[in-house]
Design a protein around this nucleic acid. Structure first.
Lengths: 115, 115
DNA sequence: GTCGCTGTCAACCGGTTGGTTGAATAAAGT
DNA sequence: ACTTTATTCAACCAACCGGTTGACAGCGAC
């Protein structure tokens, strides 16, 4: 198992099926059958995908009768967003300007991203 | 091979070694030997990691004499950042306020993230 | 209770990944 | 020319991943 939280999240998103499931869940919680409907794959396969997303902390699952609805975990993506933010200067020109300003008025922050 | 660009990027980042390499490259370009130095693994293994990062479009590689320095590809992470941005409302309370405002003054954008 | 629906579990399979080692390539130094 | 330095290639290996199938468990309805 990937014990590293960030690795688990990135790995979970490195699959189009799982990203599609997340996208679907932005519309609200859904059962395994609902989520499986667009895909040409077995229910068991979708169930496995949901387990990966759950272990990565990206979704949570409930229990209603025989249904196990999945829903987005609101904070699930925050850690990745924060990791990415450290690199914003490398693609976002508006960040460059802010960065230059901050470096001008105070000592620059030499801290690199933690892994 | 993962032909899907976003999948390749997420998969490339789902490894602490590769994230550490990226972090190191924010300090400037580096040779394979430089990059391998912190790790208890062979040069060939690091070379493979660099190939994964290169195929994902996260780094580029040069050629100076017998060195093949790696450097960050500035736009490499942009696509992921844009993908993540669609989910910002789910963790960022300040986005909630903006979102509420936008929904108030105009029809909400029902477009989900593309995978 | 038993039927039907929903979902998970376990075993299996082929392909990929992350590492190793040893040989090969390429350029620079002597 | 030979040696050293930097890096890659090829073959191999164990572990993991994404899928399958078949059995089974939970719950509601009849």
């Amino acid at each position: 198992m990937l014990t590293d939280d960030l690795s688990a999240k990135f790995a979970a998103l490195a699959d189009p099926t799982r990203r599609a499931i997340l996208a679907r869940l932005t519309e609200g919680e859904a059962s395994v059958n609902d989520l499986a409907q667009p895909f040409d794959m077995s229910l068991a396969a979708v169930s496995k995908h949901l387990k990966v997303l759950e272990n990565a902390g990206l979704i949570t699952r409930g229990k209603e009768a025989q249904w196990r609805p999945a829903r987005l975990e609101p904070m699930g993506l925050k850690g990745m967003a924060e990791w990415l933010e450290h690199y914003r200067r490398y693609w976002d020109s508006s960040f460059d300007r802010l960065d230059a300003y901050l470096n001008k008025i105070q000592k620059g922050d030499p801290r690199g991203p933690r892994n």
